[in-house]
């Protein structure tokens, strides 16, 4: 799963190393996609309107459904977040912290576009 990545690939940092998800061209600015990770885990990968990529866990901790990748992006105080499509809680894309409930968070994965 960790073959050398072609230029323009988006990669997520997992404990086992950089994981190649897709070409950056597969992403739509302002929206997300789901990425299948090893062992049936999944991440939500986003391209913000400034062109930066962000990845967090795809499972919405409030409902247990794997839907964060389908949420809408926004920014608060300059930091991008995604609003869950189900009950609308917002998650910071850099840290995975829920902005509406301190006790909730999802994993955050460093993400990059390979040069």
């Amino acid at each position: 799963m960790t073959a050398p990545a072609a230029p323009g690939s988006v990669q997520l940092l997992l404990p086992g190393g950089w994981f190649t998800a897709c070409p950056v061209g597969a992403l739509e600015p302002g929206r997300g996609v789901a990425v299948l990770l090893p062992e049936d885990a999944q991440a939500a990968l986003f391209l913000d309107s400034a062109g930066a990529v962000h990845a967090i866990g795809n499972i919405d901790p409030f409902t247990g459904a794997a839907v964060l990748s389908h949420g809408l992006l926004g920014s608060a105080a300059g930091r991008p977040y995604v609003a869950s499509p189900l009950l609308k809680q917002r998650f910071d894309l850099a840290t995975g912290r829920c902005l509406d409930d301190e006790a909730a968070s999802v994993p955050a994965y460093p993400a990059r576009v390979v040069g």
Partner: peptide
């Protein structure tokens, strides 16, 4: 890669 996909937020418990 164990545990990397564990979605449980540490802060919850």
């Amino acid at each position: 890669m164990d545990g990397m996909d564990n979605p449980t937020p540490g802060a919850a418990r």
